[in-house]
Write a protein that binds this DNA or RNA. Sequence first.
DNA 1: ACGGCATGTCCAA
DNA 2: TGGACCTGCCGTG
Length: 333
Amino acid sequence: MPEGHSVHRIARQFERNFVGHRVHASSPQGRFAAGAAEIDGRRMTDARAIGKQMFLGFEGDRWLRVHLGMYGAWDFAGEILMDATIASANGRMGQTNQRGTFLDSPNPDAIYDTAGENSVTSIGAPRKARLRMAESEKQESAPASFPPEPVGQVRVRLLTDTVCADLRGPTACEVLDPAQVETVVAKLGPDPLIDPGADAESRFAAAVRKKRTAIGLLLMDQSVVAGIGNVYRAELLFRARQNPHTPGASLPEEHVRHLWQDWAKLLKVGVETGQMMTMDDLEPEAYRKAMASRADRHWVYKREGLPCRVCGTNIVLEEMGNRKLYWCPYCQA
DNA sequence: ACGGCATGTCCAA
DNA sequence: TGGACCTGCCGTG
C-alpha cells in the first residue's frame, strides 16, 4: 500500500532512532529467525529508501532489505525521537483524534500549522509513544512496558536500549550483501529524492519515450521510475491532463519531463506531510472542503461515477495493469 | 461478526 | 494471466 513517500519517512525514522546504535534483532514470529541472527548485535550504519524499497545497513556489510507490499507496516515504540515533520503531522493527532489517522482531522489547516501547541514540545525531544508507519501513520500512547509484548505476527523486531521497531506483513524481508543490494537497486528506475539532478529526469524521459507501452503502465513500472503507486499514478496523469493510454513513445519529451518534475514535487510534499497531497493547486476554499472528507481528497482517485472537479464529466474506472485506474475522459482526452 | 477490499510484487501455469 | 502472499480497515448486517 505505501507509495514512495511513506517509505522515505520510515527510512528517516530509522536514521534518527537506529543509525549509530547497536541493534538486537529477533523474529518473534520465527519466520525470519536465520536472517535476524545474521544482523543481531551489529550496529546500524545506514537507512535509506529507494522508491518503495528500504535498505537498513549494518556493520560488516550486511543489509536488511524490506518491502512492505500491500499490507506491511512498521511499529515503533519506546522513547522515539520524532523527526520534525513526523512530530508535527502526528503530534496533535494522538490527543485530539483518538481513532483514525491524521487524515481524518477535522481541521485541515493543522497540516500547515507546525507551530501548534502539541508539536512544539515534541520536535527534537524523545517522546514515549507508539507510532505505526505504513501507508498512513498513527500515533498512540506508549505501551506499559518496554519492550512491549509482540502483537500478532512480528517478522522482525529491531531493538535498541530505548526504541523498538516491529515489522509485520512485509512482501520482502531479507539480509543481503552489498553485491545483492546493487542487483536490486540496478533494477530500479530513478527516485527524485535519491537522484535530484537532471540526469535522473533524462533517464526517466528516455525510458518512457522508447516504449510503446501506455504511460499509465509506465508510471507504475518501478524500473522506469521508482516509488509511484496507484494513487500517485492516477493523480499525476490527471494533473498533467494526460490520457493514460497514450504510448510513452508518442509523448513529447517536454510532457514527460513535466511528469517527472510533478512527481518530484508531490513526493517531496508527501515526505514532508506524510500525506498524499495531490490537490495543492486547488482554490483554498475548495481545497479546505475537499480535505475535510477522506473520500474527497483527490482529483480522480476513487472517484468513479462522480463529476470531475474541473469539467463535471463522470470519472471513469477501468482496469490497467491489474489495478484500478481512475481518470477523466474529457480532461484527459 | 463477517467479508470484501487495498496506496504491491512475484511466480507458476 | 491468475493466484499467493498475509494484514488492517471499512461497510454491512
